[in-house]
């Protein structure tokens, strides 16, 4: 089964993360996202894929305009 066949409603995940960031504000968003990442990695149960996702997340970080 490829990743694309999976039944993941990324729209809902996307919105939930956005709402979480809004709810916790700049001060606590970092910790909220860190917790979410640890929980997702635990659920994934695959260290290599988790590390790959973390590496992928670090690409194209510069040159992006920060939302205010």
């Amino acid at each position: 089964m490829s990743d694309r066949d999976r039944n993941v409603d990324l729209e809902a995940v996307y919105a939930a993360l956005a709402e979480g960031i809004d709810a916790h504000g700049p001060e606590h968003s970092e910790m909220f996202l860190a917790k979410a990442a640890l929980l997702l990695a635990e659920a994934l149960g695959d260290e290599d894929r988790a590390l790959r996702a973390i590496a992928d997340a670090q690409r194209n970080m510069t040159g992006m305009r920060r939302p205010d």
């Binding site: 970092e30 910790m31 860190a34 917790k35 640890l38 929980l39 635990e42």
Partner: peptide, 17 residues
Amino acid sequence: AVMRDAALSLALDFPFA
């Protein structure tokens, strides 16, 4: 420090952390 706090805060509910 952020990850430590994240792990501790998770540990309140999830033994793995």
